[in-house]
Computed example of a mutant assay.
Amino acid sequence: MNITSGNIFAAMRLVLPEHRSAMDTMERSQRRTPLPQWSEDRLEELQIEISEAIANDAVVRITYWRDHAVYEATGRCKISYGRLLLLEAHQTIELLPQHILRIDTP
């Protein structure tokens, strides 16, 4: 933290540890991204895009929301036991359809 962000106490050298942890907690909460709320039409569009990607075995780049942050991953989609999985080179990511922000082809 620095003085340009508007917090003069963070720029000071002598800050109590409990104050520093409170400032860090406040800063993390300000950076949190809220869960997007999609309409039924948008969820249906995403479902069609996912179905096409699975049918064509296409590599897709999915931007998704998880734990109050936005992530991006590239891989192939697969449905297994009613769950949507994105198979990357070295990991498998389980996704909820309402957490998907965007689907692109790289």
Rank of each mutant, 00 (worst) to 15 (best):
W65S: 06
L85D: 06
A11Q: 07
A55D: 13
D67C: 03
R42P: 06
Y71C: 06
E49R: 02
L43F: 01
R28L: 08
T63N: 10
R32Y: 05
R32Q: 08
E40I: 00
C77K: 04
N56S: 12
G82P: 01
E45D: 15
T63S: 05
E94A: 05
M26K: 04
I62R: 06
K78T: 01
S21G: 08
A53Y: 09
Q91G: 05
I62A: 02
Y64M: 01
N56T: 11
T33C: 11
A53D: 09
L84G: 00
K78I: 05
A69K: 11
D67F: 10
L95C: 06
Y81W: 10
E88G: 03
A69H: 09
D57S: 15
D24F: 01
R32K: 10
K78R: 11
A73R: 04
I50Q: 02
A58Q: 13
N56H: 12
T33W: 11
L95Q: 03
R32M: 07
T63R: 10
E94Y: 03
E44V: 02
V59Q: 04
L95H: 06
E27L: 13
Q37S: 15
L43R: 07
R42M: 05
E94N: 00
L86V: 00
T74Y: 03
M23A: 14
R76G: 01
I79W: 04
Q37G: 09
C77S: 03
M23Y: 08
A22W: 14
M12D: 03
M26Y: 07
T74Q: 04
A22Y: 14
L84Q: 05
D57K: 15
E44F: 07
A58N: 12
P34S: 12
R66K: 03
V59F: 01
H99K: 07
E18P: 00
E52V: 10
